Deep mutational scan, measured.
Amino acid sequence: ATNIVSKVKWYNSTKNFGFIEQDNGGKDVFVHKSAVDAAGLHSLEEGQDVIFDLEEKQGKAYAVNLRIK
């Protein structure tokens, strides 16, 4: 899926990962520091509106092509 609009559930800049809620009630989506860095960001804030693409690797959903709404 591409261009999903949602909100950051939480992000831990010390552990370099977090999760984004899915508005459709699906499972929370993992977001890694590499996606945050690629977006030119230093961190994410809880409740922040984001747009991302969903990529599945080894049966897990990852946020990629992250951008701020």
Rank of each mutant, 00 (worst) to 15 (best):
A1R: 15
A1D: 09
A1S: 12
A1T: 13
A1L: 13
A1Q: 13
T2D: 08
T2Y: 13
T2Q: 12
T2A: 10
T2S: 11
T2C: 12
N3E: 07
N3A: 09
N3F: 06
N3K: 07
N3G: 10
N3T: 08
N3W: 05
I4P: 05
I4C: 10
I4S: 06
I4L: 11
I4W: 06
I4R: 10
I4G: 06
V5L: 12
V5T: 12
V5M: 12
V5N: 10
S6P: 02
S6E: 02
S6Q: 05
S6W: 08
K7F: 07
K7Q: 06
K7G: 02
K7E: 02
K7A: 04
K7T: 08
V8G: 01
V8E: 00
V8P: 00
V8C: 02
V8D: 01
K9T: 03
K9G: 02
W10H: 03
W10V: 01
W10C: 08
Y11D: 02
Y11L: 01
Y11I: 02
N12V: 06
N12F: 07
N12G: 04
N12L: 07
N12T: 06
S13V: 13
S13C: 14
S13Y: 11
S13R: 13
S13W: 10
T14P: 06
T14S: 13
T14E: 12
K15C: 10
N16W: 08
N16H: 14
F17K: 01
F17I: 04
F17N: 02
F17S: 01
F17C: 03
G18E: 00
G18D: 00
G18P: 01
G18F: 03
G18A: 02
G18S: 00
G18T: 02
G18K: 01
F19G: 01
F19C: 04
F19S: 02
F19H: 02
I20P: 01
I20V: 06
I20T: 02
I20Y: 01
E21V: 14
E21H: 14
E21C: 15
E21G: 13
E21F: 15
E21N: 11
Q22W: 15
Q22D: 12
Q22E: 07
Q22P: 14
Q22A: 15
D23N: 14
D23I: 15
D23K: 14
D23T: 15
N24G: 13
N24Y: 11
G25M: 09
G25A: 09
G25Y: 09
G25D: 09
G25V: 07
G25P: 08
G26Y: 10
G26L: 11
G26I: 09
G26T: 09
G26R: 12
G26C: 09
K27V: 10
K27C: 09
K27A: 11
K27E: 09
D28N: 08
D28M: 07
D28E: 08
D28Q: 07
V29F: 10
V29A: 05
V29P: 00
V29D: 00
V29T: 06
V29I: 13
V29L: 06
F30Q: 02
F30R: 02
F30V: 03
F30E: 02
F30D: 01
F30P: 01
V31D: 00
V31T: 01
V31G: 01
V31W: 02
V31H: 02
V31C: 02
V31P: 02
V31L: 07
H32G: 07
H32Q: 04
H32A: 05
H32F: 05
K33F: 09
K33R: 11
K33A: 10
K33H: 09
K33E: 03
S34T: 12
S34R: 10
S34P: 02
S34C: 10
S34I: 09
S34D: 07
V36F: 05
V36E: 01
V36H: 00
V36N: 00
V36G: 01
D37A: 14
D37P: 02
D37F: 14
D37I: 15
D37H: 14
A38I: 09
A38D: 08
A38M: 10
A38Y: 07
A38L: 10
A39I: 08
A39K: 03
A39D: 01
A39L: 08
G40I: 04
G40D: 06
G40V: 04
G40P: 01
G40H: 08
G40R: 07
G40A: 06
L41I: 11
L41D: 03
L41R: 05
H42W: 11
S43E: 11
S43A: 11
S43I: 11
S43K: 12
S43Y: 13
L44E: 00
L44G: 01
L44Q: 01
L44C: 02
L44W: 02
L44D: 00
L44K: 00
E45C: 14
E45G: 09
E45N: 12
E45I: 14
E45Y: 15
E46A: 15
E46W: 12
E46M: 14
E46F: 10
E46R: 15
E46G: 14
G47C: 08
G47E: 04
G47Y: 05
G47W: 05
G47Q: 06
G47L: 04
G47V: 02
G47N: 07
G47D: 05
Q48H: 06
Q48K: 05
Q48A: 09
D49G: 11
D49M: 15
D49C: 15
D49E: 15
V50T: 02
V50P: 00
V50A: 03
V50W: 01
V50Y: 03
V50S: 01
V50N: 01
V50K: 00
I51W: 08
I51N: 03
I51Y: 07
I51L: 09
I51V: 11
I51T: 10
F52P: 00
F52K: 00
F52L: 03
F52E: 01
D53M: 04
D53E: 05
D53R: 03
L54H: 03
L54T: 05
L54E: 03
L54G: 01
L54W: 05
E55T: 09
E55R: 11
E55F: 14
E55N: 08
E56P: 04
E56L: 14
K57L: 09
K57F: 13
Q58S: 12
Q58H: 14
Q58Y: 14
G59D: 08
G59T: 04
G59Y: 05
G59L: 05
G59C: 06
K60R: 13
K60A: 08
K60Y: 11
K60S: 07
K60V: 08
K60W: 10
A61H: 13
A61F: 15
A61D: 08
A61S: 13
Y62I: 08
Y62Q: 12
Y62R: 10
Y62E: 08
Y62F: 11
Y62K: 09
Y62V: 08
A63S: 01
A63Y: 02
A63F: 02
A63G: 05
A63I: 04
A63P: 03
V64I: 11
V64M: 06
V64G: 04
V64W: 06
V64T: 10
N65H: 08
N65Y: 03
N65E: 03
N65A: 04
N65D: 03
L66W: 00
L66C: 03
L66Q: 01
L66H: 01
L66E: 02
L66V: 09
R67A: 05
R67P: 03
R67M: 06
R67T: 05
R67K: 09
R67C: 06
R67E: 06
R67I: 08
I68S: 09
I68Y: 07
K69C: 13
K69Q: 12
K69V: 14
K69L: 15
